[in-house]
Nucleic acid binder design. Structure first.
Ligand SMILES: [Mn+2]
Ligand SMILES: [Mn+2]
Ligand SMILES: [Zn+2]
Ligand SMILES: [Zn+2]
Lengths: 135, 135
DNA sequence: ATGCTATTTAGAATTAGTCTATACTCCGCA
DNA sequence: TGCGGAGTATAGACTAATTCTAAATAGCAT
């Protein structure tokens, strides 16, 4: 994603496009992917950025609050940040830790349960847990 | 669940039914529920048990390895242990943190994606994220 | 320049969970 | 009746992701 695009994208989401935020967005929003905060920091450092750990975490919080990225909880030891924000589903390989997207059009429901009283639906997410086949 | 039942249940799963394991099982397997390790420790302490934190964590690991309980990752700050081990789904209220079961017969799929090469399916889990309705 | 606000930062603090080294329990056997 | 070993339990040190704090910095308006 080009620099000017990122700047406008942040502005459209009401986020001041500071250098650090553009750098974090540049790494994570580059393509459909799932990265942990540590992975993002490593990428930034490799590219010569001096952004601090605290700023990366602050920035990811701001991004997920405003819908620029999505948090994914599959691994209890850390969060993953998903650059794809529209509704979709995931494969999670428990052997390799790989996390991959399933486009939402590949999953169709014949029935879903009624929602509990006093609640509204925010999302419906399918997680298909995989093992690597050994046979 | 009565004491003798728990003892037999542990034995059937190949787990030596020590006092501490029977106590942890007595709390968690009492009914369908989702408890964190800390919640389980609090319950045990309230009931006068002297079981250590390390033993509770070791025991929960043993229980989930042998299929007596299931780990649920919805909240990135801690694991929940689910006393229901057969396939089912969850409502998660992001406002209250409430986690509730959806029986698997209330969810039917019309289509699911093909599995990636070299993998086999371990589980298919649906998570319906809810907000508390304010209107 | 001066102040004002938002932002960034280093490093301390937090916290769920793991690890380590020691102690206890149980049991078969000398 | 006293070992010895396997399995288990324990306190407390440790780890690592994340959050917090309090001080610096950057931009911008007066
Ligand atoms: Mn779609
Ligand atoms: Mn069923
Ligand atoms: Zn995704
Ligand atoms: Zn459940």
């Amino acid at each position: 994603m080009a620099g000017l695009d990122i700047e406008r994208l942040l502005q459209r989401h009401g986020v001041m496009p500071t250098l650090q935020r553009r750098e974090v967005a540049g790494v994570l929003l580059d393509k459909p992917q799932h990265l942990s905060a540590e992975q993002i920091i490593d990428c930034l450092r490799l590219a010569g950025s001096r952004v601090s750990k605290a700023t990366v975490y602050n920035t990811l919080k701001i991004f997920s609050d405003c819908g620029l990225v999505r948090e994914v909880n599959v691994d209890s030891t850390r969060k993953f940040y998903d650059s794809t924000t529209h509704a979709h589903h995931h494969f999670y390989n428990v052997d390799t830790g790989e996390l991959n997207d399933i486009p939402c059009e590949l999953v169709d429901f014949l029935s879903l349960p009624p929602l509990p009283q006093g609640t509204e639906q925010e999302s419906v997410e399918v997680l298909i847990r995989l093992r690597s086949k050994t046979d």
